[in-house]
Computed example of a mutant assay.
Amino acid sequence: MSAIPVAADVLSPDLEVLPLPDVAERLGVPVTRVHQMLRDGQLLACRRDGILIVPALFLAGDTVVKGLSGTITVLKDSGYAEDEILTWLFTADDTLPGTPIEALRGDRGREVKRRAQASAF
Rank of each mutant, 00 (worst) to 15 (best):
Q42P: 14
Y80M: 10
E102N: 04
P19N: 14
L89H: 02
A92W: 10
H35C: 08
A103D: 06
Q42R: 08
L27E: 04
I51L: 12
L44Q: 03
L38V: 00
V23C: 01
P19T: 04
A120C: 11
A56E: 14
P55F: 04
K66D: 14
G106V: 07
L75N: 00
P21Y: 11
T99I: 06
D77T: 04
L104G: 14
L52N: 08
S69G: 13
T99Q: 07
L43P: 14
G79A: 05
F121E: 12
F90D: 04
D62C: 12
V6N: 04
L57Q: 11
A45T: 09
G41K: 02
F58W: 06
M37Q: 10
E82C: 01
W88A: 02
F90Q: 03
I85N: 02
S2P: 13
A60Q: 12
K76E: 08
G109H: 04
Q117R: 12
R33S: 11
G98A: 09
P30N: 09
L44C: 02
Y80V: 06
D9V: 00
G98W: 06
V112N: 05
R26F: 15
T99A: 07
P55T: 02
L57W: 14
R39K: 15
V65F: 02
L86K: 09
R110Y: 13
A120Y: 12
L20D: 12
D93E: 15
M1L: 13
L44F: 04
P97F: 07
A24M: 01
M1I: 10
L59Q: 08
V31E: 09
E102C: 06
R26N: 10
M37W: 09
D9P: 13
K113L: 15
E111G: 08
I53P: 08
M37C: 06
E102Y: 01
L38E: 07
A103I: 00
V74E: 15
T99V: 05
G41E: 00
R115N: 11
T71V: 01
R47C: 10
V6H: 01
L89N: 01
G61L: 12
G61A: 13
A103L: 04
S2K: 12
L43F: 02
H35M: 08
L44R: 05
Q36I: 00
T63C: 14
A3V: 05
H35F: 09
D107S: 14
I51Y: 14
L104W: 07
D62P: 14
P100C: 04
G79W: 06
F90G: 08
A56F: 15
V6E: 02
A118H: 12
A120S: 10
P97H: 09
S2R: 11
L89W: 05
P97V: 00
R114S: 12
F90C: 08
V54M: 03
L89S: 04
A24V: 05
F58Y: 10
D14I: 08
G70V: 01
A7S: 00
I85R: 05
A81D: 13
R26I: 00
L15D: 13
E102H: 03
R48C: 05
L44N: 04
V10Q: 03
L96M: 01
T32Y: 11
I53L: 07
E111Y: 00
S2W: 07
V17C: 09
V65M: 01
H35Q: 12
E111L: 05
D94K: 12
